[in-house]
Design a protein around this nucleic acid. Structure first.
Length: 617
RNA sequence: GCCGGCGUAGCUCAGUGGCCAGAGCGGCUGUUUUGUAAACAGCGGGUCGUGGGUUCGACUCCCUCCGCCGGCUCCA
């Protein structure tokens, strides 16, 4: 997230205020919630009133923007003034602004800022912040007055460039028991040029949308008959999944992780034991046996199963660490509105792993996993930083405070030892332990949380896992959960957009395409020979010998974003040399050079094997 | 789950109460044997997401369900 300057913050805040002004002019009965600054812009929550049918739609944006421009054109000064809280409440009542009144009442009651359910951004709309709040600030521009902490720019004319983007439902104070308001979003920048750049970036993001590319490049499909959030992968998409999973596996096999396999259903007792049932029971898919009275569930995670493998034998301190690895699918019944593309699905494939180790082995194990993650993200070309996700003071976590404190400290030490860029955040932990979340930045500057390393003192306890120590006594192992890619589906969503579908050779579903100039026997024999050779080398090579012009076949190969395309005709057959056509983003020392066919294929095979990143994203 | 938008051919999209619903691309067939981003011709292809309702008449208006999109909430 780009830091915004104080000045830009004030501009965006002012624009929220100006938008409210315009909305008030158009719908005098409008009631306002909060109107904070967010990344790249601002929003304001508006309620046009229960009794009216009126709703703001995107069709109204022109009107609202025109109203805002009018306010901006008039260049009203923003006048700041303060009122005691009680007077402010009287103002809210008189102005018929019940949401503002509620905020003020909370403010007065708690003596400090608003209730916890408002996030930090929203706090910006309300005065105060320290315990001695006695008065709150208002801003007035022209005929519109609003409760607001500010800051604002001097006058409406200095608010900068903006564009309204969308309107969406949003619960008052983020609570689904509360009425739903309409949230008007706008983006805003200091200059028209920056605004245009931002809109261009959004345009670019739209072009890279993995749902669009997934269809265009024939990677995955959904079917109404199968259900929402249940993607199916085509042969091309499956290549991506398997190559990524193989890489992730290989990175950990280096550290002696071993593959295991578990069934996808289990008795629910497993999750009652683990503690997951109580917390996530309603997200589990139930599976009923028609033969017996068994009631099973689809696994929503793998760790409890893996603990069963651990406890299948008595373990000695000499056996540890035990490192299990499995790329497998879990099933979670996400609420329908939460699904979208590959980002949120109901069948989630994880490159999951669990380490069972002694306390004194934690650091080494974490270090290994951090190194593996570093290599993976370097290979896919996404810069990493990590978030140390700690618990907060709520009671949503299992395990003692002492365990948590110790675990959090060990994670931090490992991160520092690995010289990773990091930040710390409370309240982001899993309920069973603190974690290291990897934040990867994509080619157009967006940051995504993908993989995690999580420490877990809770499940070993709940499952009664133990090992025999050096002294013959029983000890409890520690579990470390780690998925490098996270979910393959979500990783692909991000990665497809990161690369815009221009996959590096090692991942490209089709690495080389041969285009035949004609369909004469000699040509077909030659392409067949090359295809056989490519298969020996483990390359994914296809032949397009359709009855079309070379130009058209080239075009098709370009649209499919195939790294290397080779036209094969009489010349190539005689010389046994080719001039590969190289996808534009791939950086090569010398392009357009004739090269012996076998040398060419070997070079590509080596490139794939080494997972070289020659593409400039 | 909630609020809003949307659903027409494999894909991208025209078509808002009235004769048998259209285009381009893709597909198929034929002609052509092609040299680095689209050869030419012909032919198929849609119970207009689903079920119900209003109407003399529904792709068009209303409701149900399914699915998609943007948010909210959630995200082990």
């Amino acid at each position: 997230m780009a830091e915004q300057s104080d000045q830009l913050y004030a501009m965006r805040h002012s624009l929220a205020h100006i938008m409210a002004t315009a909305v008030q002019h158009l719908w005098p009965e409008a009631k306002f919630g909060v109107g904070p600054v967010v990344e790249n812009g601002f929003y304001y929550d508006v309620d046009l009133g229960e009794n009216t049918e009126a709703r703001i739609s995107e069709d109204d944006f022109k009107k609202i923007e025109a109203g805002m421009k009018q306010v901006i054109g008039a260049d009203y000064p923003f006048e700041r003034f303060e009122k005691p809280v009680d007077e402010a409440i009287a103002w809210a009542q008189q102005a018929n602004q019940p949401y503002k009144e509620e905020l003020l009442n909370d403010l007065k009651r708690s003596g400090t800022t608003v209730a916890k359910d408002l996030d930090a951004a929203e706090l910006g709309t309300i005065a105060g912040g320290d315990a001695q709040v006695e008065s709150v600030s208002f801003y007035k521009n022209g005929d519109f007055t609003d409760l607001c902490r500010g800051p604002h720019v001097e006058s409406t004319g200095k608010a900068g460039a903006f564009k309204l983007m969308r309107v969406a439902g949003a619960y008052w104070r983020g609570n689904d028991q509360n009425p739903q308001m309409q949230r008007l979003y706008g983006v805003a920048f200091a200059t028209d040029k920056e605004l245009r750049q931002h809109l261009n970036m959004l345009e670019e993001a739209k072009k890279r949308d993995h749902r669009k590319l997934g269809q265009e490049l024939d990677l995955f499909v959904f079917s109404d008959m199968v259900g929402s959030g249940l993607p199916m992968f085509t042969p091309r998409g499956t290549v991506l999944r398997e190559e990524l999973a193989a890489f992730s596996t290989q990175l950990r096999e280096r550290y002696d992780f071993q593959k295991v396999w578990i069934p996808h259903i289990t008795k629910k007792e497993l999750y009652e034991a683990s503690g997951h049932w109580a917390k996530f029971g309603d997200e589990l898919f139930l599976v009923k046996s028609q033969e017996t009275s068994d009631e099973l569930v689809m696994k929503p995670m793998n760790c409890p199963h893996h603990t069963r493998i651990y406890e299948s034998h008595p373990r000695s301190y000499r056996d540890l660490p035990l490192r299990y690895l499995e790329t497998t699918t879990v099933y979670r019944d996400e609420k329908s509105g939460e699904l979208g593309g590959l980002n949120r699905v109901r069948s989630i494939t994880q490159d999951d792993s669990h380490v069972f180790c002694r306390q004194d082995q934690i650091e080494t194990e974490i270090n290994n996993l951090l190194a593996a993650a570093n290599e993976l993200y370097a290979t896919v070309g996404m810069p990493l930083r990590v978030r140390l996700s700690y618990r907060d003071e709520s009671d949503a976590y299992l395990g003692s405070h002492e365990l948590w404190a110790s675990a959090q400290e060990q994670l931090k030490n490992a991160v520092i030892a690995n010289e990773l860029e990091y930040f710390e955040q409370d309240g982001e932990a899993a309920f069973y332990g603190p974690k290291i979340d990897f934040m990867a930045t994509d080619a157009i500057g967006r940051e995504h949380q993908l993989s995690t390393v999580q420490l877990d003192f809770v499940q070993p306890e709940r499952f009664g896992l133990e090992y025999t120590g050096e002294d013959g006594g029983k000890q409890q192992p520690v579990m470390i959960h780690c998925a490098l890619l996270g979910s393959i589906e979500r990783f692909l969503a991000v990665y497809i957009e990161h690369t815009a579908g221009r996959f590096p050779v090692w991942l490209a579903p089709e690495q080389v395409r041969l285009i035949s100039v004609n369909q004469e026997e000699a040509t077909l024999a030659f392409t067949q020979e090359l295809r056989d050779r490519a298969r020996e080398l483990g390359l994914r090579l296809t032949v397009d010998n359709s009855n079309e012009s070379v130009g058209k076949k080239i075009r098709a190969a370009e649209l499919a974003k195939i790294p290397y395309t080779v036209v094969v005709g009489e010349k190539e057959i005689t010389s046994r040399e080719v001039i590969p056509r190289i996808r534009k983003d791939i950086v090569v020392q010398e392009g357009d050079r004739a090269i012996g066919v076998d040398e060419f294929l070997k070079t590509v095979a080596n490139e794939a094997k080494a997972r070289v990143q020659k593409t400039s994203l």
